[in-house]
């Protein structure tokens, strides 16, 4: 009698603790599950100092040069948004484009409350929704936490593009497969910086191994108040923002 009771108690405890749900989920194992930072080895992250960005669009240029992103303006792996928040609460956002004629805005608009630039790129989520929805496993997460697209097996269904909350993906018009920022995987695996970080004139963009004890990246995380984009979606982005304004989505 006692045995049965304690068994039942244990059984319900497991149920309540969510163990049951996890067990059910384990019946359908998926290789494309979210990864956790490894104890050893690299786990890459990205930092953006919003206060330092001058909106020069060198990063967008460099990214297109480095990664065969279509030159025509529409598709980008990284972009920079300009926010203008007016005193009446109205917010205007615009994505700047490289080669935008540097229009002088000499008369400082008196209605501007605050204004700034925000660089955007793939957040390389630790819990990436794009990887979760890819039907064929063409989008996957590497051991060092970078989300890549296998263009040989991508069928171009664009489910990942729909699932990305950040608009970081597009369908490459030549290969007809999904494409996105790879943290310049070919560069970082040679110890180089991603092209956008390399050319950023003001160090608004920081890149590095989150597991490293001392690096520009870990210093960035130590010295700043950090926020991520759309944290409510539990995507656990690895693109960290310092001094991010609440208007940025």
């Amino acid at each position: 009698m006692n045995g049965r009771r304690s068994f039942l108690r244990g059984f319900f405890a497991v149920l309540l603790s969510g163990g049951a749900i996890e067990g059910v989920l384990k019946l359908f194992p998926s290789k494309a599950h979210a990864k956790e930072a490894p104890r050893t080895g690299a786990w890459y992250g990205y930092g953006v100092s919003v206060d330092k960005c001058i909106g020069c669009a060198r990063c967008m240029d460099a990214c297109k040069n480095e990664n065969n992103v279509p030159k025509e303006p529409f598709f980008v792996r990284t972009w920079v948004e300009r926010y203008i928040i007016r005193k009446n609460g109205q917010t205007t956002v615009k994505a700047i484009a490289p080669g935008d004629e540097a229009t002088p805005e000499t008369v400082s608009d008196k209605r501007i409350l605050r204004s700034f630039f925000v660089p955007k790129l793939c957040n390389q989520c630790a819990n990436p929704p794009c990887v979760q929805v890819c039907p064929v496993g063409a989008t996957f997460q590497t051991e060092d936490g970078v989300v890549l697209v296998n263009e040989k097996t991508c069928i171009g269904c664009r489910y990942c593009i729909q699932a990305c909350p950040y608009g970081a993906r597009y369908l490459h018009p030549v290969s007809h497969t999904a494409d996105k920022c790879t943290f310049c995987y070919h560069r970082i695996s040679q110890g180089k910086l991603p092209a956008c970080v390399e050319v950023c004139p003001t160090q608004a963009r920081v890149f590095g191994d989150l597991n490293a004890a001392a690096s520009p990246m870990s210093r960035f995380l130590r010295m700043n108040k950090i926020h991520t984009l759309k944290p409510g979606l539990n995507t656990e982005p690895k693109a960290y923002y310092a001094n991010l304004d609440g208007e940025v989505r």
Binding site: S30, P135, G137, T153, C157, R158, T177
Partner: peptide
């Protein structure tokens, strides 16, 4: 699909986490 000729991928390497797979 962007690559209709690759539709068989969905049968050969289906990812159980994907509703579409």
């Amino acid at each position: 699909l962007g690559h209709p000729e690759r539709f068989y991928e969905i049968l050969l390497t289906p990812q159980t986490s994907s509703a579409m797979a």
